[in-house]
């Protein structure tokens, strides 16, 4: 069967459609919120991430953090919480150039537990915000840094 121009263009369009769909689905999976990780103050990061939300102080989030971090480039943190239905965990370091360290989504099959290692520019508060049932809870702890980890 000879290929007509109409057939050819039709096939090309379908192919292009698939390629586009593939490309978009890939970026959709790996979507990274660049704006949340921009260089800004801690206050404006909070305003951007939780507009109009009250962050409740709670003692139900337990942080295992060193009081004095000798080397700011590797600060271990362990977060555990007795709050039910935790779905997102945010870690902030107040005075880092990029205050948002990381954001974890948690499946209900996981305990409210995260262990990680992060960098701190200087002595400041580390803030952990947890989202559960559309409520936000926060807790903070001061870490003294003797050698900064963000500069060089």
């Amino acid at each position: 069967m000879p290929t007509t121009r109409r057939d050819f263009i039709g096939k090309m369009l379908t192919l292009a459609g698939y390629t586009m769909a593939l490309a978009f689905s890939k970026t959709g999976l790996a979507s990274w919120a660049a704006a949340d990780f921009s260089r800004q103050t801690f206050a404006s990061t909070l305003k951007q991430l939780f507009p109009g939300q009250a962050l409740k102080e709670t003692n139900k989030i337990h942080l295992k953090l060193p009081r004095i971090a000798e080397n700011g480039s590797v600060v271990p943190i362990t977060i555990t919480s007795s709050i039910e239905n935790v779905d997102t965990v945010y870690i902030f370091s107040e005075k880092n150039p990029v205050p948002l360290i990381a954001k974890f989504s948690l499946n209900p099959e996981l305990d409210a537990f995260i262990g990680a290692r992060f960098k701190m520019q200087e002595t400041c508060d580390v803030i952990v915000v947890i989202r559960a049932d559309n409520q936000y809870y926060q807790t903070r702890q001061k870490v003294k840094v003797t050698l900064g980890g963000c500069g060089g």
């Binding site: 948002l100 948690l106 990680a116 992060f118």
Partner: peptide, 25 residues
Amino acid sequence: DQLMSQCQMGPGIAKNPFFSYHIKS
């Protein structure tokens, strides 16, 4: 094959990133 956790992070995570999780079952 079930997504347990998706983490988005900036340059504030330390070199050679380490993470730990607890799976209930």
